[in-house]
Write a protein that binds this DNA or RNA. Structure first.
Lengths: 115, 115
DNA sequence: ATACATAGGGATAAATTTTTCCCCTTACCC
DNA sequence: GGGTAAGGGGAAAAATTTATCCCTATGTAT
């Protein structure tokens, strides 16, 4: 694991919120789980652009924040599912608002990048 | 300027929104402007932890997204002010929601990091 | 002449996040 | 044995963001 050299700012609510949703693929992963795609392998099939290693890292991070929790079934082949915690559920509407804002304004924001 | 090697995903609204508010100090800068701290030097005095170079870079980025716009006054010493555009204003309530969520849950999220 | 405040940026380094590559385990199927 | 599918992670490289250092310029004040 990477060990941070500069301490983070944990006091600001905004920084915390962005930490939770702000990774490159975390929002997409959260969206998968929201759509009942719960197993690591299924998430990976859904997000085939992304290496499964990356997905694992993000899942682990979200689990550390206790946004999601892992359920392990004693089956073969191994079966793992991720479910939102209560706090995890509470962030879903926040994400929706972010997404709405982004969809409404993305052409505006990136008008210049179009060359 | 740094030239990206991997193209970004501009299609997802969430990615766009996070791009706009998700830099390390952008939210703080936006908060300054919201509190009528509009001049680069004043923002820098407010955010004395952060090098002015960094603040400039973020301001420039926000300006490229047209979240803020620069007004240059023909005074001496030079006077520059940043103001929100209409779209810039529209993101403020979104940021408030993020911040509220973060403040409400930060102890929960970082309970483990406390060692 | 020296110092200060303002705004701004080049060059480079450091820190952090993301990616790639390859490995391990269990158990089933052919 | 060799192949599949599941979950998982070490090590190192690459990509990206953030930080540090030092310079430019203008005009004003001491």
């Amino acid at each position: 694991m990477y060990e941070r050299k500069i301490p983070e700012m944990l006091d600001c609510g905004l920084a915390v919120a962005i930490k939770v949703v702000g990774g490159k693929w975390k929002a997409w992963i959260i969206d998968c789980i929201k759509r009942d795609i719960r197993r690591p392998s299924a998430i990976h099939r859904e997000m085939h652009e992304v290496d499964s290693r990356i997905i694992n890292l993000h899942l682990k991070e979200l689990e550390e924040y206790r946004i999601i929790e892992k359920k392990v079934y004693a089956e073969v082949p191994a079966r793992v599912e991720y479910w939102f915690t209560e706090v995890g559920k509470s962030i879903l509407p926040v994400i929706n608002i972010l997404e709405e804002w982004g969809n409404e304004h993305k052409e505006y924001i990136y008008r210049n990048n179009a060359e």
